[in-house]
Structure formats: structure tokens, C-alpha cells
């Protein structure tokens, strides 16, 4: 039940029963909450000029320089929503941006539930 899931970001929630990441939009199970959620997504290397249009040929065209900057896009394999974008130089390590303490999260959630029940 998605109502019991704990919302962590705009597009991510954690199921306390299975301790898994889920897409907030479609409920797709992304992977274990103790791991990097990005491992369960689809990734695409986007030429930045497709998003930020170049105004003329050549350098400094008002678009990011594709040899300096790429946009890594992350999609939900269930519904195709774009959960994250990362502007990176080509080949740069991808950030493990959210490393949540799942035990602490679950403990907090049950504390809050007990508090509400009382």
C-alpha cells in the first residue's frame, strides 16, 4: 500500500515492509533501500544542446559545450518519469546522492505511528 510508504523525495518512497525503493508515481519497485536507488533506474547520456539550444554554430553558442558537460538523465523503468538529472563532465563518476539510514528511518516511522495511535 503506497499510503504506508515513506516519501523521501519528489519521486522516491521507501516501503517499510520490504525496505525497498519505489517510484512515487507508478509504484515500481526500484531496489533495496539500503542501496543506491540509481542502480534500479534507466540512464541516458543526453547531449546538452538537445535541452539548451545552441544559437549559432561554434563555441559559446549559449548551449553547454557537449565536450565539457553532459546531462545524465534517470528514468523510472515503470512509468518513464524523469527522477533526476546530473550535469557532469563526460565520464565523471555518478553521485551516490542519497544514502539513507534505513533502520533509523523505520524506527522513526514506527515512533511517529505509535505517537499517532495514542
Amino acid at each position: 500500500m503506497s499510503s504506508q510508504r515513506i516519501r523521501v523525495t519528489e519521486y522516491l518512497e521507501i516501503d517499510p515492509e520490504s525496505t525497498t525503493w519505489h517510484c512515487e508515481r507508478c509504484g515500481h519497485a526500484i531496489g533495496p533501500a539500503s542501496e543506491n536507488y540509481k542502480r534500479g533506474l534507466l540512464l541516458h547520456d543526453r547531449d546538452p544542446r538537445e535541452i539548451h539550444p545552441a544559437r549559432f554554430e561554434g563555441e559559446h553558442s549559449f548551449a553547454p559545450d557537449p565536450s565539457w558537460c553532459r546531462i545524465v538523465e534517470y528514468y523510472c523503468p515503470g512509468c518513464g518519469v524523469q527522477l533526476e538529472t546530473e550535469y557532469l563532465p563526460p565520464g565523471h563518476p555518478l553521485a551516490h546522492d542519497i544514502q539513507i539510514d534505513v533502520d533509523a528511518l523505520l524506527a522513526r516511522a514506527s515512533e511517529i505511528r505509535e505517537g499517532q495511535a495514542r
Binding site: 523525495t9 519521486y11 539548451h52 548551449a63 565539457w68 558537460c69 546531462i71 527522477l83 550535469y87
Partner: peptide, 16 residues
């Protein structure tokens, strides 16, 4: 060459 502003949760950053 590299935008100064990034995006958030699937949004894009700024242009150059």
C-alpha cells in the same frame, strides 16, 4: 561552457 545552475528531481539546470 558549463551551466552554473543545476536542476532538482528531474528538472534541468540553467543554460550558458
Amino acid at each position: 561552457r558549463f551551466p552554473v545552475t543545476g536542476g532538482m528531481f528531474g528538472g534541468y539546470g540553467g543554460s550558458c
